[in-house]
Amino acid sequence: MNIDALAREISAGKPVRSLQMSDDHWPEMDCTGISFADSVFERVQFSNAVFEDARFANCRFVSCRFSHGQLSGARFESCSFADEDGNRCSFAFSDLQRAAFSACDLSLASFDRTELFAIEMHDCNLTGARFTKVDFSRALSRKQIETRAHFHACKMDLVELSEVKLPGCSLSGNRLREADLSGADLTDADLTDCDLFQAILDGAKLAGADLTGAEVSGLNLTTLADFAGLKISDDQMFRLLDAMGISVRTRER
């Protein structure tokens, strides 16, 4: 499909299917609310692209870059942003507020200085993904900031989330093995049933966070910036004390 034909279909609001595009820049056109299915984009530069409330189903993005893109409210279902050679896709200086990714492969993806307020990711592969200077918040007033994000049942091994601010956000059921969460603000966050084996949490804030059912072996509370009000179960208590070098003995009666 050539650019003119593509532009006509998009202008008419028709779903775009089986599009194949490579080594090109996405044309300047308003794709708000458009639907893409079974399409392949290779080494495409999506600079200043407008995909607000767009839908992508079973699409493949190989070495693509979204720069200054408008993707608020976009939905990605069963899409791949990685390939067997380890090439990554990147989102830089883009708006992904209220966007949703479901069953997508985002391994090694890079999110740089991107707005991620109210983003949702379900059953996604985020292995090795990097979140650098991203923002999960929005200002409601000069003094009130709202933070919202939802990651559920995602594979997030080796993910880079250092210094991120996710207070009160939902991260339940994720696998975060060897993830870098150093300096992260996870105050009052929902971390139930997460796998935090060998996760890096030095300087992280976990005050009021719920770790019930989480794998916490190796987590040393003394390395945290704050853990007041941390919620855990009885069996987790002994593992956390053991990691601190405290031996718990039962007194004989």
Rank of each mutant, 00 (worst) to 15 (best):
E160P: 00
F41Q: 06
L166D: 10
V40R: 13
F151R: 06
L116D: 13
L230H: 01
T187E: 06
K165C: 06
F91Y: 12
V50M: 01
C194M: 05
E252I: 09
E160V: 13
A37R: 12
R251E: 11
F117G: 13
S170G: 09
D4N: 14
S182H: 06
S107I: 04
V44G: 08
E115M: 14
A243K: 05
R177G: 13
L166W: 01
D202Q: 03
D193I: 02
F131A: 02
S72T: 13
N48G: 01
N2L: 08
D105I: 00
L241M: 15
V164P: 04
V164S: 08
I3R: 14
K165I: 03
S182P: 05
C59K: 03
V16F: 09
G33A: 15
E84W: 02
D226P: 02
S137P: 01
I10V: 05
A189K: 15
R138V: 02
L201T: 10
L176H: 07
R249L: 10
F117V: 12
D180F: 04
R88D: 06
A57T: 06
R8H: 07
D24Q: 14
D24P: 00
T32D: 02
C124F: 00
A100I: 06
L171K: 00
R113Q: 15
D53T: 10
A153K: 13
S47H: 08
R175H: 12
G73K: 15
S162Y: 10
R253A: 12
E178C: 08
S102Q: 13
V134Q: 12
M21C: 03
A243T: 10
D123Q: 12
M21E: 00
L116G: 04
D30I: 06
E42L: 10
N174G: 10
H152S: 09
E160T: 04
A153V: 13
R253D: 00
A204C: 10
T114V: 14
S107D: 05
L161D: 06
A57N: 11
E52R: 04
L191A: 09
V40F: 03
N2I: 11
L6T: 02
S11W: 03
I246R: 11
A204H: 03
P27V: 15
F238H: 11
R98N: 08
L116C: 04
V50Y: 12
L230Y: 05
M237L: 10
E77G: 02
R88H: 02
S247T: 07
R113A: 15
E252W: 04
L181W: 03
D112M: 09
D112F: 15
M21Y: 13
K133Q: 12
D210W: 07
D157V: 04
A228L: 04
E163I: 07
I3E: 03
D188V: 07
G213K: 07
S247Y: 03
E84H: 12
V134N: 14
M121R: 14
H152M: 09
S182I: 03
E178D: 10
S107G: 11
K205F: 13
R253N: 07
D85N: 07
G73D: 15
